[in-house]
Computed example of a mutant assay.
Amino acid sequence: MRKILMAAALTIAAGGPLGAQEMSPRATFVLHCAGCHRMDGQGSLPGGIPAFPDSVGHIANTDEGRTYIMHVPGVLGASLTDAEIAEVVNYILETWSDGAPRFDEAEVTRRRAIPVPDVVRKRREIVAELAEQGIPLSTYPWP
């Protein structure tokens, strides 16, 4: 019974029978991002998950930040196509930023191919660069 209910919930979230059509970016967010970043985008400081408000848009407004976003663990490990990643990241930006540029599939593909050996270090560098410009970001829990 539990499996039937889960399949029904996934069918509703996808807007129809699974595989019959693509999920909406919001449904993709719910299934792939909200578990860590929460439905309100606030993340979890004790869990090491940064909040989206007052951060993701500033990060996405920088070249290095756009590459960083494509290498955060949830994006890197998602079983999504580059087009789906662009759509869900655009949903996040539309929801928690003020006009950051949208991603398209080609940019996602290009930026995912750029090596980022240490994503925590990359974020620290971006935060430092933005702080020098007077742009503070939400608290980042990693040392």
Rank of each mutant, 00 (worst) to 15 (best):
residue 121 R to C: 08
residue 69 I to Q: 01
residue 98 D to E: 14
residue 138 S to N: 08
residue 62 T to C: 15
residue 108 V to C: 06
residue 44 S to N: 08
residue 133 Q to A: 14
residue 7 A to Q: 09
residue 86 A to C: 05
residue 94 E to W: 08
residue 100 A to R: 12
residue 60 A to C: 15
residue 80 L to W: 01
residue 89 V to L: 04
residue 102 R to Q: 07
residue 118 D to W: 07
residue 70 M to Q: 07
residue 134 G to A: 02
residue 61 N to K: 10
residue 9 A to Y: 11
residue 46 P to N: 00
residue 61 N to F: 10
residue 24 S to I: 06
residue 36 C to T: 07
residue 101 P to W: 08
residue 26 R to F: 07
residue 79 S to I: 15
residue 30 V to D: 15
residue 11 T to N: 10
residue 20 A to P: 08
residue 58 H to K: 01
residue 106 A to K: 04
residue 51 A to P: 06
residue 125 E to V: 09
residue 137 L to G: 11
residue 129 E to C: 12
residue 110 R to V: 11
residue 102 R to T: 03
residue 73 P to Q: 12
residue 116 V to F: 06
residue 76 L to Q: 01
residue 33 C to K: 01
residue 82 D to P: 00
residue 73 P to C: 03
residue 120 V to S: 12
residue 67 T to S: 05
residue 124 R to K: 06
residue 17 P to Q: 08
residue 60 A to M: 13
residue 85 I to D: 00
residue 6 M to P: 07
residue 118 D to F: 05
residue 58 H to E: 12
residue 86 A to R: 01
residue 9 A to K: 13
residue 78 A to T: 11
residue 101 P to A: 10
residue 96 W to R: 11
residue 128 A to N: 13
residue 27 A to D: 05
residue 52 F to S: 06
residue 63 D to S: 12
residue 129 E to R: 08
